[in-house]
Structures are given as C-alpha cells and as structure tokens.
Design a protein around this nucleic acid. Structure first.
Length: 269
DNA sequence: TCCTTATGTACAA
DNA sequence: TGTACCTAAGGAC
C-alpha cells in the first residue's frame, strides 16, 4: 500500500522480475490499451521512483508513469498467469512471471520531457540519494502551515504519506499543529534522518514499522500485535487506544481531509 | 447485499 | 473546502 517506500520497492520488484527481457504488455481493463499495444514485446530497460511516482522505462524516451493513488494495487505472481479480471489496467507477462496493476490514479505513457516535469514539481525524496533536505527545510521554515500538512505536501517532501507523517511526528514529540516556521533546522534534520531510516526499512520489509525495540509489545510486557495496516506503529489508526509510551489515549482529527493521529501528552510542543 | 473506509491527488468554486 | 476518481476489504444488516 502506497507510501513512498511501497513505490521504491515496486521499482525494485518490477526490474527484478521483468528487467532486460521482452514482456507481453496488455490492458485487460482497456484504459491503457493503445499504449499497451505499442509497448507489447518491448524490453523493460530500467525503473525509477520519486516519492509516490513510479516510472517504468521501455527504451529511450518511453516511460510508463504510474501513480497508485489511494486504491491502486500491484500484484506479482509466477506464470502461468491466471485469466485477468476486468479491473487489471496493466499486465506484464514473461516466461516466468506476471504482474497486474489495478486501480491506479495514473497509468500513462510519457516522454522524457513529461517525466522531467513530474520530477520538477516534487520535493526531495528521503529514499533518493540525490535528495537535498535543506531544500525542503527552506519551504518549511517560511511557512505558517502546520508541520502535519507540510509533511504531506509532495512539493515540500516527496514520499511521506499519512502513516509516516503521523509516526515521525510522534517519534520526535512534535505537536502536529505546530507551524513550519517554528520548526528549528536541527529538528528538521532529525526528522529527515529518521525518515531516511524508517523508509529504507519500509522498502526492505515492504511494510511500515516505526516502534522502537524498547517500546514493542514484547518489551513493554503487552501481548504481541501487528496493526491492521501490516506493521507496528505508535499512533496511526490507534485512536482512543493507549499510547505505547505514556498510556494516555491517542487522539484523532481531520486535517485537510485526512485523518491525523497523535498523542497529545507525548507531542506537546 | 449494502455501506463505509482507506497508506492519494487534482480540480472547481 | 468540497468533490470526483479508482478498487477491494470488512462490517453491518
């Protein structure tokens, strides 16, 4: 499920299963049909991720741009591929593997120029080696917007979604409603470094885990548990449950049409 | 079987 | 700020 770590993992997985070989390309659902016919039989030459955007390269100047949005899902499997259902927007098949893309916000064949335009409107991505955290901080430091909203703004920082947003603010004891301009450079650097660590682990494990070893259920003498999004977290979707650290109730609120979760006792400043 | 919900974004007003 | 888009799972009836 799609925050930046998922997309970077997909870039790796698409390349591992399909890189360097010709693939059958189809769009059983039809919306990508013309482009699929054009790409059918061509070789996947490289993959890239920037934030929540995935790029599949099929030769020079030909990219499939994928954004999963809220509902998009990707499923890999070994051949023989089952008959596709009519929601499969894009299917790749080779001798050994198939992969189905369903429900993406975007699946489009684009040029180099169009790809550049997408990179240009995205902020630095903690998972990319070329990322410049200072560029993100320049925007944060002059904004009256809350830090919770800024972390979700892909122009400011690319790849952070609702889970990492909530979790990283908890891990740093920061009130989600604090204005960006009131965040110090050292605080930003710490948040960025933490996101790099957390999101790299997310790519490795293909899930979001944010709970430090000393706060796991085992360490705290509670029954083991995995949150229903697939990993172990402090606050995301834990409204009204006890905080792992202080035992107080986790709060939730609407912020810019998304669910915000935080511990008002642990995140006071 | 229907209703709600979701780790997202873009556009209109 | 609200709404539209796309899909699937889980819970209520």
């Amino acid at each position: 499920m799609p925050e930046g770590h998922t997309i970077h993992r997909l870039a790796e997985d698409y390349l591992a299963a399909f890189g360097g070989r010709g693939a059958r390309v189809t769009s059983p659902q039809g919306k990508f049909g013309d482009a699929a016919a054009l790409l059918d039989g061509s070789v996947l030459t490289g993959t890239q991720a920037h934030g929540k955007h995935l790029f599949l390269g099929f030769g020079p100047g030909r990219w499939v741009h994928i954004h999963l949005g809220l509902f998009g899902k990707v499923g890999f499997g070994a051949t023989p591929a089952p008959p596709p259902t009519d929601t499969v927007r894009l299917r790749l098949v080779n001798d050994t593997a198939y992969v189905d893309l369903r429900g993406p916000t975007t699946c489009a064949l684009i040029t180099d120029d169009e790809k550049h335009a997408i990179h240009d409107r995205l902020g630095p991505d903690p998972l990319r080696p070329d990322a410049d955290p200072a560029a993100a901080y320049r925007r944060v430091a002059r904004s009256r917007t809350t830090i919770a909203a800024l972390l979700m703004d892909q122009k400011v920082i690319a790849g952070v979604g609702n889970v990492y947003r909530a979790e990283v603010l908890f891990r740093h004891g920061i009130d989600p409603y604090r204005a960006g301009k009131d965040l110090g450079a050292a605080e930003w650097d710490a948040i960025w470094a933490d996101l790099v660590d957390l999101m790299r682990e997310g790519v490795r494990n293909n899930r979001i885990d944010t709970v430090r070893p000393e706060h796991t259920p085992e360490a705290m003498g509670r029954p083991p548990r995995v949150d229903d999004h697939g990993g172990e977290v402090y606050v995301y979707r834990r409204a009204d449950l006890p905080c792992h650290i202080c035992g107080g109730e986790i709060s939730t609120a609407d912020l810019a049409a998304r669910n915000l979760f935080w511990c008002p006792a642990c995140q006071r400043s």
